[in-house]
């Protein structure tokens, strides 16, 4: 009995520790200033961004990404992307680009829109090889680039 109690206490405390880790991870995600250089793309990612977007500046803002902090299944990580940028005939979101730093294909997908869709929203599911930043870049018809990123923890390699 004493044994199982101590085991229970151990499980409880480790569960708390995990919860604490998750909480600090989401706190870091919520405060971009605290994230600091961690959000900085590495050389491979920079190369991909440069090939796609040239030297145009990619600024943070105007895009929201809803994704679990910890993905239960790295073969199917749900993404929900929205933007508050205008969606009118001469000024609209031309596309959302998905970049996952540590995936075999760093540039995972591009979703190109016209003004006819009325609102820039996207809902899909992606694979992730391992824990990584997931970046969304919104490109406007005027060529501006707006982005957001979230760090997603995964367990198994989902790139099957």
């Amino acid at each position: 009995m004493g044994d199982s109690l101590s085991r229970r206490t151990f499980l409880k405390s480790s569960a708390l520790a995990v919860a604490g880790l998750a909480a600090s991870a989401s706190a870091a995600a919520a405060a971009p200033l605290l994230r600091g250089p961690d959000n900085e793309p590495d050389e491979d990612v920079k190369k991909v961004l440069h090939e796609r977007f040239g030297t145009r500046p990619i600024r943070e803002g105007h895009v929201t990404l809803d994704v679990p902090d910890v993905a239960p299944d790295s073969r199917e990580v749900p993404l929900l992307v929205e933007s508050d940028l205008p969606m009118i005939a001469d000024n609209f979101v031309k596309g959302f680009h998905i970049v996952v730093d540590h995936n075999p294909d760093i540039y995972l997908a591009g979703f190109n829109f016209t003004a006819a869709i009325g609102a820039a929203t996207l809902d899909t599911r992606i694979k992730m090889r391992r824990s990584s930043h997931v970046r969304i870049i919104a490109e406007t018809s005027k060529g501006e680039l707006w982005s957001t990123s979230r760090f997603v923890y995964t367990s198994l390699n989902g790139c099957v």
Binding site: V100, A109, G110, F111, F113, A116, G118, T124, I126
Partner: peptide, 29 residues
């Protein structure tokens, strides 16, 4: 394609999950 007009197109890699799902908006004109 909506009424003969291409309103959106997507370029994917194999990083999109099995049985691919996509949700997006459309203005029903």
């Amino acid at each position: 394609i909506y009424g003969g007009e291409r309103v959106a197109h997507f370029e994917w890699t194999s990083g999109i999950s099995r049985d691919p799902f996509v949700g997006f908006s459309l203005r029903a004109v």
